[in-house]
């Protein structure tokens, strides 16, 4: 009865009860995320290749840092309000994810301070991001899809949003040449991949009726579109990526709001 990362890894890979049909369905949902992931990677690559100003990078990472904090708070809220009969394994996994998000918040703060060559005013930046930009951050989708009370939406968020985050952080690790930052972001990418597996585990457990599967298909479509628009605002608008998205998922709708990064660093 010892719980470490290896035990938790085993837990997420271990869903023996899912039928072949359910396994095939979840695999299909995963496969259909691929276009979103590739479109996002292309945007990240183009964005990083275009960065010439260190301050732009600092502000970009501040946004990502606060997004990790938002994820942590949402996860902690979900655990705090979990139903009394929630499986203890489920609580362990969600708590592990909250801990990972807290660690990512700290790690990205360290990267920001490293780039900034000195401490940042954490309160000022978190305040700013929460007030001006929270509506167009990926973590906002946790609230939008009511993941705190909707286990299916939560599992899907983990599969898609955390899966996309894994690919994005890995791409960032590839694009930044600094070894400290690349190492940090490589680690974050691995954690996000684990969170995505948690989502797959849950979907394998609960997507056992045609109604639930239909809902997954509908929500996944919306979530992919939302995440793409978040990526456009957080990095850059890339015509190639938008075209890929529309070919795979249908017409996209650009978000009206823009990031406000007019503060000083």
């Amino acid at each position: 009865m010892k719980f470490d990362q290896a035990e938790l890894e085993k837990m997420v890979d271990d869903v023996e009860t899912a039928s072949e049909q359910v396994r095939a369905f979840v695999a299909q949902v995963e496969a259909e995320n691929e276009t979103l992931f590739v479109a996002s990677e292309k945007q990240i690559e183009a964005y990083y290749n275009g960065i010439t100003d260190r301050k732009q990078l600092v502000k970009h990472f501040i946004g990502r840092m606060v997004n990790e904090r938002m994820n942590m708070v949402e996860l902690a809220g979900k655990v705090a309000n979990a139903s009394p009969d929630m499986d203890p394994k489920e609580l362990q996994l969600l708590s592990k994810q909250a801990l990972d998000e807290a660690n990512h918040f700290r790690m990205v703060r360290d990267v920001v301070e490293y780039l900034n060559e000195g401490p940042i005013d954490l309160k000022k930046h978190v305040d700013w991001e929460m007030e001006k930009n929270r509506e167009i951050r990926g973590a906002k989708l946790l609230a939008k899809y009511e993941c705190e009370t909707d286990e299916l939406a939560m599992a899907l968020y983990q599969l898609i949003a955390e899966g996309r985050a894994a690919r994005n952080w890995a791409m960032m690790a590839k694009c930044v040449t600094d070894p400290f930052i690349a190492g940090t972001y490589g680690k974050i990418a691995r954690d996000e991949k684990f969170h995505s597996k948690m989502g797959r585990r849950k979907l394998l457990q609960i997507c056992d009726t045609p109604e639930k599967q239909a809902r997954v298909v509908e929500l996944a479509q919306q979530m992919r579109m939302d995440l793409f628009e978040v990526n456009c605002k957080g990095t850059l608008e890339l015509e190639e990526s938008r075209r890929m998205m529309e070919e795979a998922y249908g017409k996209t709708t650009k978000l009206e709001a823009n990031l406000d990064t007019s503060y000083q660093v």
């Binding site: 942590m72 902690a76 655990v79 909250a98 801990l99 807290a102 918040f105 700290r106 954490l122």
Partner: peptide, 11 residues
């Protein structure tokens, strides 16, 4: 953030 990590570890 280190404080938050400690709290989440405890959780």
């Amino acid at each position: 953030p280190i404080e938050l990590v400690s709290l989440c570890k405890q959780a």
